[in-house]
């Protein structure tokens, strides 16, 4: 029982990170109808930027961890958002109105570009982050022999995710930008005729997705303590699986899917085999695509007649 509880806690932590990335996939799919395969690598870039900013702050002598983390979060979000904006501007916008596969190919190219760029610029070796947050938030009494731990890092990850999600949710549902975004999702031409600048709305969507991905990048860095140029690939594909599982285009679905994928992966590693955890996660993708093509919370597409 204690073992299961521990796995649940680990799964929720991992799932939060996947959920934050999945939002970026689902939001972009909703508004432009394409899968932004470079999004996983935007997450990786976010993790690296967080690492660099942290090390720079350490060199400047900002030793107080909460302050340092807050600065890292804000700066990394801003810089990663800039990457997201640039990718959209140079790789996708010129292809808008082109055939459907064009932006997809462009996205894959962008993903390869970002990976190689970081590999060359930062080196191929794994970069460690000195442990910033230590200690445990809560530990069980340990009467049964197994101690359940909730580390401070896990609490930070889950809390940050919740706060980001709420902020994000408020933007989408309460602000004029959110309304414009949803309007573009449903009928972008009509939105344009009502005075909504569709290109700018799409740009901002990429910016928001990238900002959330950089939050995920920082959380990943805190959790695992390392980053390399390749983390974006697997994490990105898993987040994509999460978005499909939850129903691509649905924002609550992305978060739910992220949590489920995190839990499935963790529980599989705990009870079956660590080696096959990715197989388990991607089997889910296949099963969902066969039996529930519109996902858990996605709306099935109704053919208009």
């Amino acid at each position: 029982m204690e073992y299961f509880a521990q796995q649940l806690i680990n799964g929720v932590t991992l799932g939060s990170i996947y959920g934050l990335i999945a939002i970026g996939y689902t939001m972009v799919y909703g508004i432009v109808g394409m899968i932004n395969f470079a999004h996983g690598d935007i997450f990786m870039v976010g993790a690296f930027l967080a690492l660099i900013v942290y090390l720079a702050l350490a060199a400047l002598g900002v030793a107080f961890a909460p302050l340092a983390l807050l600065i890292v979060l804000v700066v990394a979000m801003a810089l990663t958002a800039l990457y997201g904006w640039t990718v959209e501007r140079i790789a996708y916008r010129p292809l808008r109105g082109s055939f459907r596969l064009a932006p997809l190919i462009s996205a894959i190219g962008m993903a390869i570009f970002l990976q190689n760029y970081v590999q060359v610029a930062q080196g191929a070796r794994v970069k460690p982050l000195p442990p910033v947050v230590r200690g445990y938030f809560w530990q069980s009494e340990g009467g049964g022999g197994f101690v359940v731990n909730i580390s401070n890092v896990q609490v930070i990850i889950v809390l940050t995710t919740i706060v980001s999600m709420i902020a994000f949710w408020l933007i989408v549902t309460r602000t004029s930008f959110g309304r414009a975004q949803r309007a573009c999702e449903q009928d972008s031409k009509m939105a344009a005729l009502l005075g909504v600048d569709v290109d700018r709305t799409i740009s901002l969507t990429f910016v928001m997705g990238a900002a959330l991905a950089s939050v995920a990048g920082l959380m990943y860095l805190l959790y695992y303590g390392v980053a390399d140029f390749y983390i974006g690939f697997v994490a990105g594909i898993k987040a994509f699986t999460a978005a499909v599982l939850g129903g691509i285009g649905s924002l609550p679905g992305a978060m739910l899917g992220g949590l489920l994928i995190g839990l499935i992966e963790t529980l599989w590693s705990a009870y079956f085999s660590v080696e096959y955890k990715d197989v388990a996660a991607f089997s889910i993708l296949v099963i969902v695509l066969i039996f529930l093509p519109s996902g858990l919370l996605g709306r099935p597409e109704v053919e208009k007649v």
Binding site: I171, T175, S176, F177, A180
Partner: peptide
């Protein structure tokens, strides 16, 4: 009806940032 007033609202909200 609010989407139709996006232009002026966007300006007033300082492109969402101030609104947030």
């Amino acid at each position: 009806l609010l989407v139709a007033q996006h232009g002026p609202l966007m300006r007033a909200s300082g492109f969402t940032l101030l609104g947030v």
